[in-house]
Amino acid sequence: MKTKILFLAAVALAAVAAPTLAAAQSASVASVAWEAPRKGDFLLTGRITDVFSQADDAIVTAAGADSGLKVDVGDSIMPTLGFTYFLTDHLAVEAILGTTRHEIRAQGGSTDVAVHETWVLPPVVTLQYRPLTQGRVSPYVGAGVNYMLFYDGKDRNSFKVDLEDGFGYALQAGADIGVQGRWSVNLDVKKVWFNTEASVNDGALKSSVDLDPWVASVGVSRKF
């Protein structure tokens, strides 16, 4: 939790500081001022991304009885890449690539035990709308789809856990804030909706888990 708070604080600080930095750069390097992307432009964005789920779904027995336990999914902070191509001055397509590792715990009463660790490959593709074509700030909203692929899972404490891959959907909001030349600071938040079926110990226990993670990022973009 402390890590998540620190990360979100860094995103907020970047949001406040970036326009000031952009203005300072504009005054001193006017000849290479940043311009909002237009049709045919391409942005490559490197980000530091925090993926955090607030899943707390019930774990039940094979017969559907409540076990008294709930699912807890740990946060993960990892580098990610974004690839954005401008179809028009106002519409762009972005593909987000990265992988994160999460610890899954069973919690309830006096029980708090790790049952599984897994890597997740959650590529997201969104269609963005960007209302502004001038100035140093290019805000956007977007919507799209994602696919959750769980791999390299490791069971913990004598539990055996199977997770189901599948499709979800996402909403997105963010902005590129020009610094100078082709470079900008990127702030981005996504909400992903995804449900997975978890089977524990060959179905002796199970859970329908709404992962529904928030994905908050801060990064640097280069325009091509």
Rank of each mutant, 00 (worst) to 15 (best):
T3C: 00
R47K: 13
F224I: 11
N146G: 13
I59P: 00
T99V: 09
Q134M: 05
A92G: 08
L87Y: 06
Y85V: 13
V192A: 10
G68N: 11
L43G: 05
Y151G: 02
G109R: 10
G178A: 12
L6Y: 13
V113C: 09
V220H: 07
V16H: 13
Q54S: 13
A175F: 10
Q134H: 13
V11N: 02
V192Y: 01
D165V: 02
A175W: 06
A95G: 10
G68K: 10
T196F: 00
Y85D: 06
S110R: 04
T111Q: 07
V29Q: 14
E103H: 06
D176N: 15
R222M: 14
L187N: 02
G219M: 10
V29G: 12
D66I: 06
F194Q: 11
G108N: 07
S184V: 07
K70P: 04
P213L: 01
P19G: 12
R47S: 03
A33V: 07
V32C: 07
V209H: 04
F167V: 14
S110E: 07
V179E: 00
L21H: 04
A58M: 04
L44H: 02
Q128D: 07
A198N: 05
P79C: 04
V215F: 09
D162G: 01
P123C: 09
R156I: 04
I96T: 14
F42P: 09
G142W: 05
A170R: 05
D155C: 09
P131S: 01
V161I: 09
A33D: 12
E35Y: 01
A14L: 15
A216C: 06
K2N: 15
S76K: 06
E164D: 15
D72F: 14
G82T: 09
D50I: 03
T49P: 06
F194H: 14
W34R: 11
D165R: 10
H102I: 08
V209I: 15
L81N: 07
Q128P: 00
P37D: 02
V215K: 04
P213H: 05
A62C: 11
A58C: 00
